[in-house]
Design a protein around this nucleic acid. Sequence first.
DNA 1: CTCTGTCATTCAATCGATTTGGCACCACAA
DNA 2: TTGTGGTGCCAAATCGATTGAATGACAGAG
Lengths: 342, 342
Amino acid sequence: MNVKQIAKLSGVSAPTVSRVLNNHPDVREATRQRVLAVMQQTNYQPNAAARSLAAGQTNVLGLVVWREPDTIFNEAYFSRLLLGISSACNARDRAVMLWLVEPKHEQRMIQKITAGGLVDGVIISTMRLADPLTAALQASRIPFIQIGRHAAGVQASYVDVENLNGAREAVMHLLRLGRRRIATITGPLNMISSLDRRDGYLAALTERKAPINSALMIEGDGSETGGYLAMQLLLPHQPDAVFVANDQMALGALRVLTEAGRRMPEDVALIGFDDLPFALQTTPPLTTVRQPIMQAGALAAEMLMELIDNPASPPKRVVLPAELVIRHSCGFRLQTARSSTR
Amino acid sequence: MNVKQIAKLSGVSAPTVSRVLNNHPDVREATRQRVLAVMQQTNYQPNAAARSLAAGQTNVLGLVVWREPDTIFNEAYFSRLLLGISSACNARDRAVMLWLVEPKHEQRMIQKITAGGLVDGVIISTMRLADPLTAALQASRIPFIQIGRHAAGVQASYVDVENLNGAREAVMHLLRLGRRRIATITGPLNMISSLDRRDGYLAALTERKAPINSALMIEGDGSETGGYLAMQLLLPHQPDAVFVANDQMALGALRVLTEAGRRMPEDVALIGFDDLPFALQTTPPLTTVRQPIMQAGALAAEMLMELIDNPASPPKRVVLPAELVIRHSCGFRLQTARSSTR
DNA sequence: CTCTGTCATTCAATCGATTTGGCACCACAA
DNA sequence: TTGTGGTGCCAAATCGATTGAATGACAGAG
């Protein structure tokens, strides 16, 4: 079933059918209704490939996510990002093409993605500092939006969350509670978000004129095991609080502290980052910084669609606020337990 | 840059370029090298839309996931399924198109998905008993594979995990440990997997000639809150063990038991299903049934590609084994804690 | 009755690849 | 030299839609 047959059945020509499909104004109402009726009856759906070819638009958005080989793929983050993107696309009748890029296929995939005819634009969620795909996309003419800010000077749009400020708030909170030896377990420092969170930690200390002790700063790999290992290294230095750059690692750190018989929050206060679902279930419940990932995804998709419709528009940078969610692990006694549940 | 230009630059015709692209044998080696060289130099990538149109193949697989409005979207399950599918597709150079179907867009999306030219085939992960998409796909000529078995009698391929047997094993384990009043919190009973797990529970009791008490069976909605509510209803009936149909709900049940001051596993033994990451982190660590979701995803993708290459092949049904992972919540003392970590 | 302008519709070209049928060429045997 | 078979390549048609230019119908003005 194709336009020609629909045209014949409804007594018009193929281009008229096409006009009906695309809501062009130059079709008499009666004709439009007639054609629509035939399409209903025959259950006609236009061929997507032919449409893409002729119109030069696929109505598909790409999502590229870096999938590290060794570090654990961050499921919770990824799912929510995807939910946000998907909602926005569903609402505007776009499809989503997904690439989880494995290093061994990197080059081939970059070629595919930047080649024409597959997608109209791309959202990339790769937080590496120097990303070959970002470079490739800039070289090509494909519109793209990045999740997470990129190095300064790059002329491209992104959606980010306030990593620095979120971390700063968390550490400020610990300082206000009277903690003095505040340690941090950072994320992998080749990721911009890790750097930002570390800088937030430093900013809070500096702001309150607290001493900065490099022995209290350890780089983790982002995984639970990484947090476990890092916390073991920190333990001898007797921190009375730890700001961990993500919840996954906080879980590992928490295990070390429990096994070492440290009481939380009395002996050591703990704060994570991300507010993953399990943060509510740990013992004690984990204080953490919540980032609006789903919202970021939806926003990125909308920005991308706008950029596709209007490729000449200048780069936009949006930074969404992060929110400190106070639970018991930081040593702050809440009036009611309810206030920290979701 | 298109085939014609490449053809001109390398002194051949467009069809020859096409042959080189598609590894047809009827091209002299020297010619092939010459064309390949030109493609390298010009950094040529064939247009995907044109290719799809001409060849009638998109090299894209669709993944359709039902996204319920109220129940919580199962992130861990979904992510792993996707990782499996993605790996298999990357390996064979296919792209993945993703639809997270919201009820309000259901009809429109079904039309899009079954329309031609977008994907070569579809994997659907919807465990509802009667699914409109399954029906629509069967009516259309699009090859598809279902994740999770469908009602008997339907002529279609699927990949499933041993829900019944996994549940049966879990309950058998509880019986062997001497538990007598074993309750269950089932998943939503409009999902086949929930029915299978419930039947596994019943099978174990029947097999051991243990009494079946309908007061000890409660239907949950699959979410943590659902588990919490269900466990509250069960508590007055004094179960000495609970088999919960998924880890999410087990988490809720665990919270009720903790709040009620029940000791685990001494007073009540608990077993979940899925082996989500957090199962290792609960207090006590959760005994659960692990399902090979990632493997199921990869397998489904491979089966789908095979089905696309050979549409006439008969339906295949594959059921992957589930594995009981014993931790402390079921009351079984392990020799070493290590053996239950991953 | 002719001319002009508007609006709806059709014609023909186009998008960029694949596919089919056939031609030219070569090697080899008769 | 002629016939035969196979290889390597090309011209033209095809896939199913969109797009801009051209055409037709029709109404109102002169």
